[in-house]
Design a protein around this nucleic acid. Structure first.
Lengths: 193, 193
DNA sequence: AACGCTAGCGGACCACAGTCCGCTTATGCA
DNA sequence: TGCATAAGCGGACTGTGGTCCGCTAGCGTT
């Protein structure tokens, strides 16, 4: 789903469109919370929002786009904490501390919203890598990993360990603490290579 | 998809069932090669194999199960090379060499069959981690990584960097050589932590 | 206030994955 | 060779994601 569907575009939005968008997001949030992301169909969401199916899809592209839109506020908060928040997550701390801090914070975000993130990442093959947020995190990490033989690759590798599907599978198997510890070690060892 | 659908089970298979299985695999291989995995529907495969849709699904569970079955021979060859082939991929070499050798060999396998592996891994959330082959590779790596603070976790982390979706996204972006180099560095640095 | 233009609407429609169940037929046994 | 049984078959059916296009109504203009 193209980025302009997720951020409000300069050409201002018509009043009914804005109303519908809000209604859809509200209905989706309610239904997802109530029945689980997987169990709710787009038809149901459209009906609950009092909106046609076409509207739903034109606005959000597909189901994963809707999930991404619902996550947008949360994700943006994390992005701002990284860009301008207090260290070590924000700027001011050495990279060796900022990388683990990011991994930690992102894991928090992930466990708090796993089903939604999973939906937003795994609907279509490669969807994760096309989302704007992925590019943001990748860029952030690549900059912190300057000094590695290939910061770009290492950033991708670290993010692979933070994929929703991966974390979702490991969480029940290893438990959150062990997962977090492993991730921290990884965050520590990757840039050292 | 349960494992018993993929390996021939002890209670021997009826003759027509065997014929149908072969016909389906052959038709699927041909259609996939001809039009691409994504572009072929289960209906088409059933029709081309001269078989009912029900047969198709009873035998292979779902589309990802069919992909897995098509990969089975290749994957098993790799497994045998790891279990009993010449070092450094097979036993006899030190773990510090066997891990990169595995990563290398698996990447070869992956680039040779990306669309099929992708289908087998990403059809359903978490599918990858339920396939028998994943467990095999995980176990193999965990044993080689004895000495790490958490071999189980590190094995998962290394496999995350070998996920079909991940490799599929990085291949066009970084190119195969850079990807392979990064992977090798990762294979080298992970157990050291 | 009336008008025209176009962004936006909505639900009929399509293709596809996956299920179900009454029928067929291979197989083991007498 | 004929029979009984259940493994196997196949295609009609369902629910879902996603598309399409003729109609509606918000908004800028005069």
């Amino acid at each position: 789903m193209p980025l302009e569907l997720l951020r409000t575009p300069p050409p201002k939005e018509r009043a009914d469109a804005a109303r519908n968008r809000a209604a859809v997001l509200e209905a989706a949030a309610r239904l997802f919370a109530e029945h689980g992301v997987e169990a709710v169909s787009m038809d149901q969401i459209a009906a609950a929002a009092g909106v046609g199916k076409g509207t739903l899809f034109r606005r959000f592209g597909d189901k994963s786009g809707l999930a991404t839109a619902l996550l947008d506020a949360r994700e943006r908060a994390l992005q701002e904490a990284v860009l301008a928040g207090p260290p070590p997550l924000g700027p001011g701390a050495p990279a060796a501390l900022r990388v683990p801090a990011f991994v930690d914070a992102y894991l928090d975000y992930l466990v708090a919203h796993l089903p939604l993130v999973r939906m937003s990442e795994t609907s279509t093959p490669g969807a994760r890598y096309r989302i704007g947020a992925y590019r943001f995190w990748h860029r952030h990490l690549a900059i912190l990993l300057t000094g590695s033989a290939d910061p770009e690759y290492d950033a991708h590798a670290l993010l692979a360990a933070l994929a929703a599907d991966h974390v979702g599978a490991l969480l029940p198997e290893l438990g959150e603490d062990r997962l977090r510890a492993g991730l921290r070690r990884l965050a520590h060892s990757v840039p050292a290579s």
